[in-house]
């Protein structure tokens, strides 16, 4: 009988990639580190610093949770060993007017970050007025930027043509996953990463290059209401989310555990 542990030399077969981009998941964020061309970039989306003042306006009276959130961010920077922090937008919360809480807190938050790491921001829809807190070289264009071979953007707008055709990493959507077992829902609102192919035909964009894929990063803000990954496409939240191909869109937990495709999760729920 043949034994399964018999050693046969096998040369590597799939050598499609020349340059390996290695993502690393940081579960306590959630955050992700992208290593490319010997550069380590820590990617964090949707921190929503200053959201408590809006909560207060809506009738929930809690103290600012900024100290906890900032500490968590600094810990992520520490464990990541990254040399650049890329904030994928919605760094602050209040629009259109920058709140008193933000005026008070933002400078200290940014100083604390800068003391540890270089910082760049892709402004999101909540970032109106953030320029006053940032240096010019820290602000990147809203519709995205290419760093090495990967595109980055907040995700509320159409991407710039330059970053289409490859992988785009985006925030804005706050994806979460709800998982069910035989009896009921056992995991509710767990932050999730979604890696999806984009159907460029339905993108409604002139020069969208084929082969675009998008990685949606979950929100760092712990009180964020989430968007169920199964509803992501239907929600019409952004040009990108509208055009994802659900059957092949992979869903990962914050620690990188691969759960299933969106199509698979939706089918699971209704069979």
């Amino acid at each position: 009988m043949l034994s399964s542990c018999r050693r046969i030399y096998t040369p590597p077969v799939t050598v499609f990639y020349i340059n390996i981009m290695k993502p690393e998941f940081i579960p306590k964020g959630p955050a992700i580190v992208i290593e490319e061309d010997d550069r380590r970039i820590l990617v964090v989306a949707d921190t929503h610093f200053g959201a408590e003042s809006e909560l207060k306006r809506r009738g929930v009276h809690i103290m600012s949770n900024t100290p906890e959130r900032l500490l968590r961010l600094l810990e992520c920077i520490e464990v990541s060993g990254a040399d650049l922090l890329l904030l994928l937008g919605d760094v602050k919360h209040s629009v259109p007017v920058t709140s008193w809480q933000e005026m008070k807190e933002m400078p200290d938050i940014l100083t604390a970050i800068r003391s540890k790491i270089d910082l760049k921001v892709l402004p999101g829809n909540h970032d109106a007025g953030i320029e006053r807190f940032l240096r010019d070289d820290e602000i990147l264009p809203r519709n995205g930027v290419m760093i090495n071979k990967t595109g980055y953007m907040h995700g509320h707008t159409f991407p710039s043509t330059d970053i289409t055709g490859g992988l785009i990493i985006a925030g804005h959507h706050h994806p979460v996953v709800n998982l069910y077992d035989d009896v009921g829902c056992f995991m509710r609102g767990a932050p999730a990463f979604v890696l999806a192919e984009i159907d460029d035909g339905s993108m409604n964009m002139k020069d969208c290059r084929p082969g675009t894929r998008v990685l949606f990063v979950p929100a760092f803000f712990e009180l964020a209401g989430g968007m169920d990954v199964c509803e992501l496409k239907k929600s019409g939240l952004s040009p990108l989310s509208r055009c994802i191909i659900e059957d092949t869109a992979d869903v990962f937990l914050a620690d990188g555990t691969y759960i299933n495709t969106i199509g698979g999760i939706s089918a699971d729920k209704s069979d």
Binding site: L55, R58, G59, V60, H61, I62, L223, A224
Partner: peptide, 21 residues
């Protein structure tokens, strides 16, 4: 306790996690 107003509107936030506070 006055922590949440009677007519509070928290639909954009995760109530589950708010309660943890």
């Amino acid at each position: 306790f006055g922590a949440i107003d009677a007519d509070a509107d928290y639909e954009k936030f995760s109530m589950h996690r708010l309660i943890d506070l």
